[in-house]
Amino acid sequence: MKVKEVADLAGISVRTLHHYDEIGLLVPKETTEAGYRLYTQDDVELLQQILFFRELGFPLKRIKEIIDDPSFDREEALRMHRSILLEQRSRLNRMIMTIDKTIQHAKGEIQMADKERFEGFDFSRNPYEEEARKRWGDTAVDQANAKAAHMTKEQQDAFHQVYVNLAAVRHLAPASEEAQTAITAWYVLLNEWGNYSPEAFRGLGQMYVADERFTNNIDQFGEGLAQFMCDAMGIYADNQS
């Protein structure tokens, strides 16, 4: 299949596939004499696995490391992903039941105890992140929560503006000049009140997508911003090495 056919099949952009090719994550095994990429069935299966990892919030560089590892077991990875999705489905079902009860309570059809209002919510842990960390390791920066809690009003305003600037370029490739300029400003700002090495910066970006609390807060500035920042921060870290 040609790149447009694969993009349409997977529901992603042609630009995304070109980027995967450029970084060596998914390089089509064949090309035509005219230079068009041709994707085999093996390429399509590998793309599916890459997108599974993306769903889990893994940055592209880490995905490449995992699938290039000789010990990588595709079937094991699929089983893990299935387990994670089943747990996520169970949690969502509990939340849907809570919503249904809340609607009935609002209509006066049932009485709802305060404790019932919060069934399905669990911000104390992230089982998807935990299982992924156990299997493939983790470089996230665990100090980020504590640091974020002590920002001044001026820092909050500065952070807000950086998010706005990043949201404005999130439609571009994370490796683009505009994206890297905006993410560099983020790195500089963070180091005005903390001490982030490029690797710690990468880890913070991974937390943005591994912890849904971060994702939800960041994506208020634009859908997909957390993932975009994670990818851009990983590319920034790579460029510093």
Rank of each mutant, 00 (worst) to 15 (best):
A237P: 10
W136Y: 10
Q143P: 00
E131P: 01
K153R: 13
A148L: 15
Q48D: 15
W186E: 03
V162A: 10
A237V: 05
T184C: 09
E131M: 06
R125T: 10
D122C: 07
K115E: 11
L225M: 06
Y39R: 04
T40G: 07
I183G: 04
G224H: 15
G222I: 04
G205E: 11
L225P: 01
S71A: 15
K115L: 10
R133E: 05
Q48G: 08
R62N: 00
V164G: 05
T102R: 15
E30V: 12
E131T: 04
N191F: 11
I96Y: 09
A7S: 02
S83E: 08
E75W: 12
I235A: 01
R133N: 13
I12Y: 01
M151R: 12
Q48V: 10
S83F: 15
Q155L: 14
Q111M: 12
N217E: 10
Q180E: 08
Y36F: 14
L78C: 10
K153P: 01
T215L: 12
F221T: 01
K29G: 13
T152R: 07
A7W: 01
N191D: 03
Q180M: 11
P174A: 03
T152D: 04
A132Q: 01
S241W: 12
A144E: 07
Q220R: 09
D157H: 05
D138G: 00
L225Y: 06
D219S: 00
D21L: 07
I99G: 10
I235Q: 00
I66G: 00
H19G: 05
Q48N: 13
